[in-house]
């Protein structure tokens, strides 16, 4: 049995895929805490679709995928941030408009110029077949950068996420913090798209953070718990993906969903009460008086 479990480690593509999935799980878990607590769970879904537009454009223009889709994703993230901060429309509407338009553009480009095939499927649902050493290095670099930024800006990011109005009045540059978070999020989605696919990144962002929220009332504990849950889901999901011969993205997400269901049942009413109000996030600022 042990031999069977270790069998896939003989293949370089699997070792690379496992490293990327594990790092991606931890990275998405970490960033997901801010995404969930800011009431922007939909952004992972939306932004990954927006980046798909960049992916399509990059493929057609023949430019480097990371550069093309990355620039596209960052531009989308900053547009969402700018529209949301004007407070005329809510973040959910801003995400909906900008990211679906970008996704639609990607689909239209594929329809006009062709290109649907292996790359298209990989972008949508994730694939470990194309994961190379450079992908491992890329996601390790993004993880290190994101972790460092969150470590160094921990206090300002916490204050901005919890109480943006008072943080602003206390001298925190909340606009810069929001933009920083969006850039890290776009970079994380870009780096993890290869394994998870655009359709499933949202789950990798939201589920570990939600599970962690059911387990703790402390922000600092929620951060490391969500990252750890993401790592476990990535590692276990990737192994199951090989043995069950199912795409990596769906398997990783199903492992996370199973963990959510288990914690949901074990923590009972306490956990449900902690997460119930996450959906009600978005307390109206009092400044408008």
């Amino acid at each position: 049995m042990i031999d069977g479990l270790l069998a896939p480690f003989e293949f370089e593509f699997f070792r690379n895929g496992l490293a990327v999935a594990t790092l991606a799980g931890g990275l998405c878990g970490l960033i997901g805490v801010y995404v969930v607590l800011k009431g922007m769970s939909y952004i992972g879904h939306g932004l990954s679709h927006a980046i798909f537009g960049g992916f399509a454009a990059s493929a057609l223009l023949g430019v480097n995928f990371l550069l093309g889709a990355g620039a596209w994703g960052v531009a989308s993230a900053l547009m969402i941030n700018a529209v949301t901060r004007r407070r005329v429309i809510g973040s959910d509407a801003a995400i909906g408009v900008i990211t679906t338009a970008s996704f639609a553009l990607g689909l239209a480009l594929f329809a006009f110029f062709g290109g649907a095939g292996a790359n298209f499927d990989a972008a949508l649902f994730g694939s470990i077949l194309g994961v190379g050493t450079e992908d491992v290095v890329a996601i390790a670099a993004v993880s290190l950068l994101a972790g460092t930024l969150i470590f160094l800006r921990y206090r300002a990011l916490l204050f901005t996420t919890f109480d943006p109005e008072v943080a602003d009045a206390s001298g925190v540059n909340t606009a810069r913090m929001d933009a920083l978070l969006m850039l890290v999020l776009a970079g994380s989605i870009l780096a993890t798209m290869q394994v998870l696919g655009v359709t499933l990144i949202a789950a990798a962002l939201v589920i570990p953070a939600t599970v962690a929220r059911m387990l703790t009332n402390s922000f600092s504990r929620m951060l490391w718990m969500a990252a750890t849950i993401g790592v476990v889901c990535g590692f276990v999901g990737m192994n199951l993906s090989y043995h069950l011969d199912v795409q990596s993205g769906p398997t990783i997400v199903l492992v996370a969903a199973t963990m959510f269901a288990a914690v949901f049942m074990v923590t009972g009413a306490t956990g449900r009460r902690r997460t119930a109000a996450l959906a009600r996030r978005g307390v109206a600022p009092a400044w408008a008086d």
Binding site: R155, L158, F159, D163, A167, V172, A277, R281, A284, P285
Partner: peptide, 22 residues
């Protein structure tokens, strides 16, 4: 206007005042 479901303990909340000092 406070989001009471946000995961912060009393100490974590109070420490936000020291956002720039460390």
């Amino acid at each position: 206007t406070i989001n009471w479901s946000f995961p912060v303990t009393v100490q974590e909340c109070v420490l936000m005042a020291r956002v720039s000092s460390r």
